[in-house]
Design a protein around this nucleic acid. Structure first.
Lengths: 207, 207
DNA sequence: TTAACAATTAAACAAACGTTTAATTTAAAC
DNA sequence: GTTTAAATTAAACGTTTGTTTAATTGTTAA
């Protein structure tokens, strides 16, 4: 893991915020330099180019994620509890890294900058492997149904949240949400329990 | 509904495809003109500016969607059949308008070009109202559970599909999908039935 | 103190950008 | 055939873009 000094981190954080709200192509290095309070030449000086800085940023954040993931799945819980724990983890992580996911979303969908994304793909693979293991554990103990498509459950979990975030203005109007706090609370409570309820209904036999 | 001549449609279609794959800021009017085989001045001539052309494009596509929606919900089906029908509609529509959804996704998430999007918001509202009506119908007849959050079901349906599309390279590798045809078939079959199964499990009392 | 290197700056660079101009061609109407 | 307006063009416009240069300041070590 590469280390960055304070000024380099200033640049990366300013870039992250701007890339997320304006897009990579919509953000000039002059605006990044201004936000980070450094000279525009510092970006090329430290990172080589605007594009290499994006790579550095993505690498920086995804290696962060990898560390977070490792600290889970060590406790002794039932498969269902583990699934719920994983949903909580997904949601909090996406919320914490909103900007980075925004950027990743666009960069993944565009063919313009076909950067490696190897680091991100690794995180996703680890995620999927861990998830599959939990589900199979639940299936073997007879708790979970077996006629399900395991690979498509994470898309349902993450997709629901991301779609909600993407259409925030619409749902704020639809649900009468007026403050940032109320919005965050809605995600923490209603949205989280909707996702858990949905996955539970899909997985667990009704008795 | 504004009508466009053939050349104007050429421009709009070229722009749609490029905006989707390169992003709005990543696409130059010169590349659009080249793809549409017109002089670069024709874009300003017909639409006023690059940004106004994007507005025209979004308006053009969303008014298309509004028309499509009206032709549903007239048949005599059970609530569950209607839900399944709606899921099919969602999926085929997102698939048919992949490019436009790509563009909308980015434009909604960015604060850069705060265009009205009134037309799109209308479509979403109509969608939600129609969906709510179906669910309540099912609840009143005792078929559907009542402890559910109706507003969050469309995000689960659409989010699952969009997340799958967004991470296409990952899922192609994960699922061993090698051709475009196999990918489209996977969406038509496995993904569609996963979504139906999930929503059904959430909505319907077992047996 | 001086040598060496890192950090920082203002200025300049060519290239690409969206848009406009002014001239020309095409098409339609009379 | 002439007139009138629309369609189309190449060229130029002024900005903004990402990057580099060359000079200066700051820091560290001998």
């Amino acid at each position: 893991m590469t280390e960055y000094n304070e000024k380099q981190l200033d640049i990366l954080m300013a870039a992250e915020s701007l890339f997320a709200s304006e897009g990579f192509d919509g953000t000039s290095i002059r605006s990044i330099a201004k936000a980070a309070k450094v000279n525009i030449a510092m970006i090329s000086y430290y990172f080589g180019s605007k594009e290499k800085m994006l790579e550095a940023l993505i690498l920086h954040r995804t290696s962060d994620m990898k560390m977070q993931l490792d600290n889970i799945f060590k406790e002794d819980l039932t498969p269902l509890e583990k699934v719920e724990r994983l949903i909580d983890l997904y949601i909090s992580r996406i919320n914490k890294n909103k900007c980075m996911y925004q950027i990743l979303h666009f960069e993944l969908s565009t063919k313009k900058r076909l950067m490696d994304m190897k680091s991100y793909a690794e995180v996703k693979q680890q995620n999927m492997a861990a998830f599959r293991k939990i589900i199979q554990e639940g299936q073997e103990s007879g708790l979970f149904k077996t006629n399900i498509n395991i690979e498509l459950i994470p898309p349902t979990i993450m997709g629901t949240l991301v779609h909600f975030q993407m259409n925030r203005p619409f749902f704020e109007a639809e649900l009468g949400i007026k403050t940032d706090e109320a919005y965050e609370n809605y995600i923490k409570n209603e949205l989280t329990s909707h996702i858990k309820q949905t996955i539970k209904a899909l997985l667990v036999h009704e008795n």
